[in-house]
Simulated assay, not measured.
Amino acid sequence: MDKTTVVILGITGSIGIQAVEVINKIGGYEILAGTYHSNKEMADHLSRNFNIRKLLKMQENYEEIFEELERLKPEITIVAIPGFVSLPVTLKAIDLSNRVLLASKEALVCGGWLVRKALAEKSKQLLPIDSEHSALMQLYEESVQKVLLTSSGGALRDWKLEQLQNAKPEDVLKHPVWKMGKRITVDSATMVNKGFEVLEAYELFGLEVSKIQVLIHKEGLVHAAVFLKDGTVKMHMGFADMRVPIAYALTYPKREYAKLEWPDLSKSDLSFCEVDQNRYPAFHIAYEIWEDYAKRTAYNAADEIAVEWFLKEKIKFTDIPKVIEKTVSKINGQARDLKDLAEIDKSARKATLEVIECL
């Protein structure tokens, strides 16, 4: 029996490594190639232990990646690379693969309409790897009136507001629920990550953002919920384990990944609370810019740079939302195609550095 072929773009990141583990456990798949950015040691380790045919270093010029995708034509492409580059790479993956598993938020945040257009024109399938969007996909039905995305609130959720300016990278990177990469862990603490997820939910399910609610849920058991027109609420529960949504997207519509562990509901106290705008000002920006792809692109670019500067301890944690807000306010433009978005992304990065210099 022929194996289903897979390429993993971003194989040394948290999602990429877990995808390799899932594929190895399920069986029936062959990883043709993987890309890495700088962690050659991890890439080589994965290649040796899981018989991955080819490794490619992700360069600024990603034409080599395109050429390799065209040569291999994998049945499934997993896109788990950070940054704006994930958008053109996702569009290429849609062109060449029957199914795209998307973990890179930037593709939908910056160019969601381009992704939707490509999927419609080529009759291809895109499935989210995000735990929240995977949950929504499993719950969604015609009578949905609104949806809920849950958030852990990040590592600083219980800090006093006046203490936040003193937070160091090591404080922010202690996520209370998930084990993730550095940027997304910081984004969890600012809840920019959840702002991205609101925009993703709009693109994936066609719901206006006014119908996408977010609540803080510290236990991390409920990943999403849907509210139906007859007053019914359906919730998706499970452990905080990214291998589950990865496996579900990989084997959809079947469930072939066996975990056989479930939350003990007799010991599970579920709590939900509103998102405090004073604690998470950058999150609320997503609701203000959801129809403007130029500002959405700036939102992503400014966050990426601000987080990088915070991790290097060049700006304060509380400077991150200030940088994002000021940068987004500076960026205006028409987003008609990928070329426009690339120019907007470039301008936004320049504007972000100018904002940081003036802090």
Rank of each mutant, 00 (worst) to 15 (best):
I8Q: 05
G16Q: 01
V22S: 05
G34A: 05
R48V: 01
M58V: 15
E67T: 15
K73S: 12
P74G: 08
P74H: 11
P88Q: 08
K92F: 02
I94F: 03
R99H: 05
V100Q: 01
V100S: 00
G112Y: 05
V115E: 00
L126F: 06
I129V: 14
H133S: 00
L148N: 04
S151Q: 07
D171W: 08
V172I: 13
L173V: 10
K174W: 07
H175T: 08
V177N: 11
I184D: 00
D187N: 11
S188F: 02
E197G: 00
V209L: 05
K218T: 07
G220F: 02
H223Y: 06
A224M: 02
V226T: 04
D230C: 01
D230E: 10
G231S: 13
K234T: 04
F239D: 10
A258C: 10
K259V: 12
W262R: 08
C273E: 11
A282Y: 05
E288Q: 13
W290I: 14
Y293R: 13
T297K: 05
Y299A: 03
Y299N: 06
N300F: 06
A301Q: 13
E304H: 09
W309T: 11
E313A: 07
K314M: 12
K316G: 00
T318C: 07
I320L: 12
K322H: 12
E325K: 15
K330I: 13
I331R: 11
D340P: 10
I344L: 13
K346Q: 14
S347C: 14
T352A: 07
T352R: 01
V355K: 06
E357A: 14
